[in-house]
């Protein structure tokens, strides 16, 4: 590399360049992470997120946080370890929500006319903020995994209930009881997703009555802890700065 004289660049121009780089990188990193994360999320928990008649008390609550703590954990590792920025979770989750909302509005609604109250994206921001702040406060990936991961799973359902509750009102429809969400699923014809394909709670002899959600959320939180561990290692691996000679 060339030897550098202190006078090659002025301090002011470096500061300005650094700031320009900040904005550019924020934008393209946001877009690249959004692409990767959105593909991952839509193909591991997407159907629950696409349709309200999938947003149930058992699998939606369990699967969504588990699948969505992945990229936050990996990017948190890089942003915190290399930059001391406690942003990885919120940054990636906002990317995911950006990708999802643009799609739901311009494609699910704008191209194929499913109404937004049927195809809205669940929010994950509360869990992301908690993950970031716990990392900032504890400065420990271990504590973030255990407390943050658990919280990420636990807060998902209450964070979304403000939007979902109204769609779980009971309705008598042609002699059967259905939620409004069920009626939406019946109403807005989907040729590719017949009713039987839904993975939703159908009840077992073992469920604790109305306590289904806390059990699901707690289980989700537990798995989130483990996934956080694994994915924070992904963050380490993907942060490699190796150069190789052969490929």
């Amino acid at each position: 590399m060339s030897s550098l004289s202190p006078t090659v660049f002025t301090k002011a121009e470096i500061i300005q360049a650094s700031r320009t780089a900040d904005w550019l990188i924020l934008v393209f990193a946001f877009l690249v992470f959004t692409g990767g994360f959105h593909v991952h999320a839509m193909l591991t928990m997407g159907d629950w997120d696409f349709w309200t008649d999938w947003k149930d008390r058992r699998l939606w609550v369990t699967v969504t946080p588990i699948m969505c703590i992945t990229f936050p954990a990996a990017v948190q590792y890089w942003m915190w370890d290399k930059l001391r920025l406690p942003l990885g979770a919120t940054f990636t989750i906002l990317g995911l929500l950006f990708g999802e909302w643009v799609n739901r509005y311009f494609n699910f609604w704008g191209w194929t006319y499913f109404p937004i109250n049927f195809v809205w994206a669940a929010t994950l921001v509360p869990g992301a903020i908690i993950l970031d702040v716990i990392l900032l406060w504890s400065k420990s990936f271990l504590i973030t995994a255990v407390i943050g991961g658990l919280a990420f799973g636990l807060i998902f359902y209450p964070g979304n209930w403000s939007m979902l509750a109204v769609l779980h009102q009971p309705v008598e429809y042609n002699g059967m009881v259905m939620t409004i969400a069920d009626i939406q699923g019946y109403h807005y014809v989907r040729t590719g997703t017949p009713e039987y394909i839904r993975f939703v709670e159908k009840g077992t002899l073992r469920t604790f009555g109305k306590d289904v959600v806390p059990v699901s959320a707690f289980f989700s939180g537990f798995i989130c802890i483990l996934i956080y561990f694994i994915w924070h290692f992904f963050g380490r691996w993907y942060s490699t700065t190796r150069f190789i000679d052969q490929y």
Binding site: V32, G36, F37, V75, T240
Partner: peptide
């Protein structure tokens, strides 16, 4: 393969 977007970190 979507995960590979994380290579941006390194």
């Amino acid at each position: 393969f979507g995960w590979m977007a994380l290579g941006l970190c390194g």
